[in-house]
């Protein structure tokens, strides 16, 4: 096993964990899950900073894959899916996940300059991107047991966060006050 191949696998697993954390923190931002030790601003800023960290690890994962001559994957295959002869489908899914991630990161960096609906629509595809990344890992991974355990754990975490998201009432719906409708104000 050459070191590049080990690096590819390791950074792949780490990227998945990091992107899972990012996704959960994104949900936390939306729902205002915060406490005095984890204030709102910290959650928001961590979400953004960890996503950039994830990109770094993903970058290494991709670079080691391409540079490693053991499997024929070229730079063009990083952005154009299903062109490899090696595990066409699974590698292709990784490419798709990467493309989606590029869209999310770039639109977020230029967020102030694009219509809010565009940003929001593309940001929603991050769920899809994460799911595709999980499947990519399962299909292309050669450490079957570790990959499966990790995929299962990460999926459980994200699914849990998603369920909690839907169970948390929207801030605006909180019955903060109630108002008497009928004019039962009597003398």
């Amino acid at each position: 096993m050459n070191p590049l191949w080990l690096a590819t696998r390791a950074t792949g697993e780490i990227s998945l964990v990091l992107f899972t954390v990012v996704t959960i923190m994104g949900i936390a931002t939306t729902k205002g899950w915060a406490s005095s030790r984890w204030p709102e601003s910290v959650v928001t800023l961590l979400h953004r900073n960890i996503s950039l960290l994830s990109v770094v690890f993903l970058g290494v994962h991709i670079a080691t894959t391409v540079i490693d001559g053991y499997v024929p994957i070229g730079w063009l295959d990083v952005v154009i899916p299903f062109q490899t002869t090696y595990k066409t489908l699974w590698v292709g899914l990784g490419t798709i996940a990467f493309d989606l991630m590029l869209a999310v990161i770039i639109t977020s960096l230029i967020r102030r300059r694009i219509p809010p609906t565009l940003w929001k629509g593309i940001h929603w595809t991050s769920y899809l991107m994460w799911a595709v990344a999980v499947v990519h890992g399962l299909g292309v991974g050669t450490d079957q047991l570790l990959t499966r355990i990790l995929a299962a754990a990460m999926t459980a975490l994200v699914l849990g966060a998603v369920v909690a998201r839907f169970l948390t009432p929207h801030r605006q719906d909180d019955p903060v006050v109630s108002v008497t409708t009928r004019t039962e104000i009597r003398r």
Binding site: P175, V176, S178, V179, T180, T181, I185, R186, R187
Partner: peptide, 14 residues
């Protein structure tokens, strides 16, 4: 219509 959830008012006073 009142935009927010409602509750029954209290009993008559005075």
């Amino acid at each position: 219509k009142v935009a927010l959830p409602v509750e029954r008012p209290g009993e008559e006073w005075r």
